[in-house]
Amino acid sequence: MALLDVRLRAGYLFLAVAIGHLVLISAQVNSRTGVPILETVTFGAFAEVQRGTSAVLNGVGGAWSGYVALRNVRAENEALRQELSSARVEIQRQRALADRSRSLESILQLGSSTELQIAAAQIIGAAASPDFRTVTIDKGTRLGLKADMAVLGPKGVVGRVVVAGPRASRVQLLVDRNAAAGALIERSRAQGVVVGAGDNRLRLEFVSEIADVAVGDLVVTSGIDGIYPKGFAIGQVDTVEKSGVTYRTIGIRPAVDFSSLEDVLVVLTPTPAQRVGAVDAEAEKPE
C-alpha cells in the first residue's frame, strides 16, 4: 500500500511538473512580448560564470602556449616575418585603392557613410543547449552594445546580438536555424535571404528563378534586413541544385569558421533602418 502511495505521489508530481511546463510554453508562444526578465537576469548572472570559466581556461592555455609549446617558434617566427612583409606590400596596395575610391566617393558626394564604429569582443562561452548556435561575448550595454547589432569576424559576418547584458551579450550565429540575413551574389547582384542550417552550413533562399547563381560565387550582405551593413562577406556558393527552372537548394560555405571563433567585432554604428526606427521611437515618446 505504501509502495503504491509512493508511486502515485511520483505520478502526480510528474503530471504537475509536466503541466507546469506546458502552461509556461503556452504563455510565451501566445504573448511574444520580447525577452523575458528572468532570461536577462539569469543570463547576466551566468555570463559571469562563463567569464570565470573562460578566464581559467585561457590562463591554463596561456601557460601551456607560453611555456610548454614553444617548440618550432624560430621557424614559425621566420615564416611570420615573411608573411608580414607580404602583408605590408598588400596594405600599400589596399591603401592606394582606398585613396582612389575615397577620391571617387568625394566626387560623388557620398561622404564617409561607410565608416563603421566597432567594438572588439572576446567569446567567453557557447550555447547551453546543443540545439542552439549562440555564443556569449564579454562586452555588453556598458560599452554601448544593443540587441540587433551586427557581429563580424575578420573573414565575414558572424551573427547578431540577441540579448545584451551589462557586461556580456549573447550572439546568435548566422548558422543557427533561426538566423537569417539579406544577401546578394556579388557577381550577378541577384538577391536572396541567407538562412542557417543548424550545422556549420548556410542556405540561400528566396532567389528569383531567372537569377544567375553559380558555384564559387561570393555571397555578401545586401543590407536590406536593417541589421547587417551592406557588402560584408557571408560565404561562397558551393552547391546549386535546380528543379526545372526554379532553384531547389543553393548551399553556401560560410566565410567564417564558426568552430574556431575567438574574437569578434560588434558594429556599433546603427544601420539606416535602425536610425529611422530610433527617430520614430523618439517621436512616439509622450512629452
Partner: peptide, 19 residues
C-alpha cells in the same frame, strides 16, 4: 536553466528533460 540560457522558449527543454 538550459532554456533560460539558450534563449529558447522556456519550458521546452524543461518538459523534455522532465519526461
Amino acid at each position: 536553466v538550459q532554456d533560460v540560457l539558450s534563449g529558447g522558449v522556456l519550458g521546452m527543454a524543461g518538459l523534455s528533460k522532465t519526461v
